[in-house]
Design a protein around this nucleic acid. Sequence first.
DNA 1: ATGTCC
Length: 510
Amino acid sequence: MTASTKNRPSSDTRSNYTGPAMVSTGEATAMLHTGETPPIRVFGTESIRETFDDLCLQQAVNSRLAPGVTDLVLNPDAHCGYGAPVGCVMVSPTHVYPGPVGVDIKCSMSLLQLDLPAEAVEDRNVRRALISAICQRTPTGAGKGQRSVGKARHVNRTLGKQLVTEGASNDVCRALGIPTAWAHRCEDSHHVGHDDTESALENRLETLLQHRHMSNFSEKMQQLGSYGGGNHFGECEVVQVGDNDRAREVAQAFGLRDGHVAFLSHCGSRGFGHNLASGQFRTLQDKFDRWGIPLPAGDRQLVYAPLGSDEANDYLDDMALGANFATVNHLLINALVLEAFQEVIPGTQGNLVYFISHNIARKEIVDDRPAWVHRKGATRAMPAGHHSLTNTPFAKTGHPILLPGNPRDGSAVMVADEGAAASCYSVNHGAGRVLGRRHAKRVLDQATVDSEFDSNDVLSNCRKYPIDEAPAAYKDFNEVLRSVKSAGLASEVARLKARFVIKDASKADD
DNA sequence: ATGTCC
């Protein structure tokens, strides 16, 4: 296979599909018809649905028709991905799919509420000092993981093995200086192996460590507490709670403070998760080749494993190992960010509002039976009273949904409504890309992008903001949120207004 | 997403 076709479906992918047949069923809902199988539910206003290009819709159809798939949902932020679109939910009671989890296992959002009033970060010099203190502790960029200041938090091999098998356990949190209470603010603080045991993960890890592609395990553990690159970021926000009684009530239950500073983070499982995901793709693709198993729609990114097989067990174990890394990575980042705030503004206190993934498969009850719900660029959205929230702090309200928008228009905290049942209890994971990276670099102007940050008084660690990450490379966030609200999936609790952004600046000067 | 192909 040549480099140019490697990441895209082969041309015969489209042979049995004559084009999208999208039928509008409401202001922000539609059905995408696949022929024989039930239609795909699509969420998005008409202008949002126009952003779905043919390949994105084709990927949705391919995924819906793949073996063992019983449901597929397309969200307003959907765009082309690997095999399945980014911005979709795929349900299967019988199969697991690495592609519709994604290559960054448990890529997630977290929000730290600080006890600082907005005025505390008004001074540009204070914000510059915060940017510097944070960047010294939570590095950005490929391969970066070494911290230059602060409390020593070296992750040795033993601690690395412990954290990828235990997740955010009390022992792991204590070893890394993470408040143990934060584990209760996680969608999942701990992922177990395919048989629901931790020992399965310990065994799988020992097997992996004998493989060459995992020989850099200790090195990858050093990346704990770092952002990485691409669309990952850290962002200082001012919380603006919605102007209605429900928003105020829910915000209070979430621990959000109107008019106060918060810190939003987006990152995943770094090089470790990438090693695991790419290893799984290679292994499964080799087996499909060797055994002559037909690929769904001829797409190598849609390889799968039937539940109960050794292949599925290994995949689920690898996903859990990567997910545990991502969980502890986010919690450590939040601890480091709090430490940075305390250095610049002594006495600052902070609490984790929530940590929630948008790239993970979870075993959930769908239509009264267990199924693997693959959310690829999609966020779990369970409303008040949902059985899975029993004994969590959010049983009576629904859990926080953290949606990054862009540094110009803000981000959002939402809460699910009853209507979320129609989307397999899911919403979007952000704005969604509207320009590909190469396209963005060609059509967007660096000076315009940078001056927009300046006129909005949003500071950044980047001298030049990465142009393929500019707000204009993403969909209209307000229209995306309007889609979610109008479809009855979730309600807005608060907006987050950016004051400064931490991004990987290393490729911005190309 | 990922030292952007072991």
